[in-house]
Write a protein that binds this DNA or RNA. Structure first.
Lengths: 205, 205
DNA sequence: TCCTATGCTGAACGGCGATTCAGTATGGGA
DNA sequence: TCCCATACTGAATCGCCGTTCAGCATAGGA
């Protein structure tokens, strides 16, 4: 065993924890699974995190931080309001690269009975809605979008995507990639008073 | 212990199972919890259902049947297309009387890793969408609604409600009853080309 | 170079919870 | 009335898994 600094080892283990949660589900992961996947002993994990509950809580916090910072990057990478909003929502959508979706569905289920977890999820969701609302606000200021309730529009857009995510990930009667994209654009058009075509091909506009 | 017919005992236990799932969560219920709540021994439950997994699977099947038959009743009880659709969706909404919502969120999480469960949920969801689509179709025929894609509209409406249900039930930044109702009506109006006012007060129309 | 703080381990522990089992008792048919 | 199929039970079993513990080993400062 290569000896590492506590800090390094912790993030290493947390990453593997996220992998395993995604693979096996939050309620099914065993400490031993994470240990094996990370190539360390189970006791090491307890040594660093004290309890399994702690391990999972920290892993979820790490995941929210990552998601939010990725969101920031995605937003910074586009220039027009339309492209930025579309980029953000496309990344949020279950068909995007956001690999963590399954984790959030697990987390919802757990959070219904876990105050602390509910709080973490609440912050994540609030920051998502705020970010989307802000993008919408920018678009309104630029004259691209038209709505008098950016926050409401952001809530509804993300809620629709949450609902679609469930259907996409649970694998039954799965809506196609294209359906989801089309529906997202339709919803944006309706909420923001934009032409669907302007959304469908923003780069060629 | 009063001795009952196997059939009676089974439904009794299944009901108590659903209660306990809602109370404790699908992954946390123990056979002993259900047994205690039902006033029987744990062995009785295994006697009737062979395994815990089975017990939960059967309970969920029962729950879907109930939901669907309640849906049928709700729909039958209203007369105009607008009232029927609104009734159905209001019942589906997490603010409605549908007491089982938490169970479905748990079930989503489990279904991501359980083919059989995913199939049950798929059927439930498909029948919901079909029913809603049919109501929309009726409304279109009657000239109340306008859309060329009833199934798509039904999918999006129910997906939005799924997403809102999560926010409502996880208890963080919970949208209010009224928000949800307003948003539902707004979405219906957008999807179906109806006046929001006609939806907001259908009985006085 | 040595020494120690600390990263790390394997083996054992402990308790929990599903399932088994051997047996009890009762409702309903003959 | 009697009898037995079967509903039902308590106690025991058994495997699983988080956590503890006693010690090992190494990086890095003195």
């Amino acid at each position: 065993m290569v000896r590492k600094s506590a800090q390094d080892r912790r993030v290493e283990v947390l990453n593997e924890t996220l992998n395993q949660i995604q693979l096996l589900g939050m309620s099914a992961v065993r400490v031993a699974d994470v240990a094996e996947a990370a190539g360390v002993s189970a006791s090491l994990i307890i040594y660093h995190f004290r309890t399994k509950e702690n391990l999972i809580a920290e892993a979820l916090i790490l995941a929210t931080e990552r998601d939010l910072s990725t969101l920031g990057r995605v937003v910074r990478d586009a220039d027009t309001p339309i492209a930025r909003l579309l980029g953000a929502l496309s990344w949020y959508a279950p068909t995007g690269e956001a690999r963590g979706w399954q984790i959030w569905i697990d987390a919802w289920s757990a959070a219904m009975r876990d105050r602390a977890l509910a709080k973490v999820l609440g912050q994540l969701q609030e920051r998502w809605i705020d970010a989307v609302a802000e993008l919408i606000g920018e678009g309104v200021a630029a004259g691209d979008f038209h709505t008098d309730d950016p926050v409401g529009a952001a809530s509804r857009l993300t809620a629709l995507l949450d609902g679609l995510a469930v259907r996409y990930l649970v694998e039954f009667a799965r809506p196609s990639h294209d359906d989801i994209r089309r529906w997202l654009i339709r919803q944006m058009a309706g909420e923001l008073g934009v032409d669907e075509d302007a959304l469908a091909a923003p780069r060629r506009a």
